[in-house]
């Protein structure tokens, strides 16, 4: 008997001895949608408040001003080299700084870069969350992990109200990273402190279209 067969036989025996009763899922009608449609201005306000609560910095700008905004964030942080995914829209690329396009860069090199600029796949307003799905404008998971400053650009149509809406929009097979504020810990006296292993600063740029 293989361990696989053994474990499955044990579980079947356990259930056969006392068949379970399953509560009706219909009594558990949780909210599948918020009251506001994706991209509603009130949702963008909520997203900004929730992100700010967890020490992310939020910038609300015109779509045409993304590159200038990103350039300003990087300059203010003193960053000199920034990595971007290969599919980052050309008109989002910052100026006045050395831009490295990720081309399977080794981790040790990424760890020495100051900042990363990515797009996002989805943002959840109620929880202040952005989700990256490793599409071409977001890149490999590692590029948004090792540099200490992450600038993430979110379009209004990507912003949904609730977690169920966010989950429904995502593609399960892709590598997904849900990000709610900068790296933090609650391990010392159960109080949240920002800044452990992931990027210690998170800037979210929310565009107007």
């Amino acid at each position: 008997m293989t361990s696989r067969d053994l474990v499955l036989a044990r579980l079947r025996a356990a259930l056969a001895a006392a068949p379970p009763t399953v509560p009706d899922r219909a009594t558990a009608a949780y909210r599948r949608h918020g009251d506001l449609p994706p991209g509603d201005p009130e949702l963008l306000d909520l997203l900004a408040r929730r992100l700010t609560d967890y020490r992310a910095e939020v910038h609300r700008v015109a779509a045409s001003a993304v590159a200038d905004t990103v350039t300003g964030i990087l300059a203010a942080a003193g960053a000199s080299v920034v990595v971007v995914p290969p599919g980052l829209p050309a008109d989002w690329r910052p100026g006045d700084i050395e831009v490295v396009v990720d081309d399977d860069l080794p981790a040790a090199r990424l760890a020495r870069l100051d900042a990363v600029v990515t797009a996002a796949a989805v943002a959840v307003a109620e929880t202040g969350t952005i989700v990256l799905d490793a599409a071409a404008d977001q890149g490999r998971r590692v590029i948004s992990l090792l540099p200490d400053l992450h600038v993430c650009v979110v379009r209004p149509g990507q912003v949904v109200a609730t977690v169920p809406e966010g989950v429904a929009r995502l593609t399960p097979g892709r590598p997904l990273t849900w990000i709610s504020g900068p790296s933090a810990t609650s391990d010392i006296e159960l109080n949240r402190v920002e800044g452990v292993h992931g990027p210690r600063r998170l800037h979210v740029v929310v565009t107007d279209r």
Partner: peptide, 12 residues
């Protein structure tokens, strides 16, 4: 006690 924890990773 957070609305969402800072990071959740999903892989397939």
């Amino acid at each position: 006690g957070e609305r969402m924890n800072p990071y959740t990773s999903m892989w397939t």
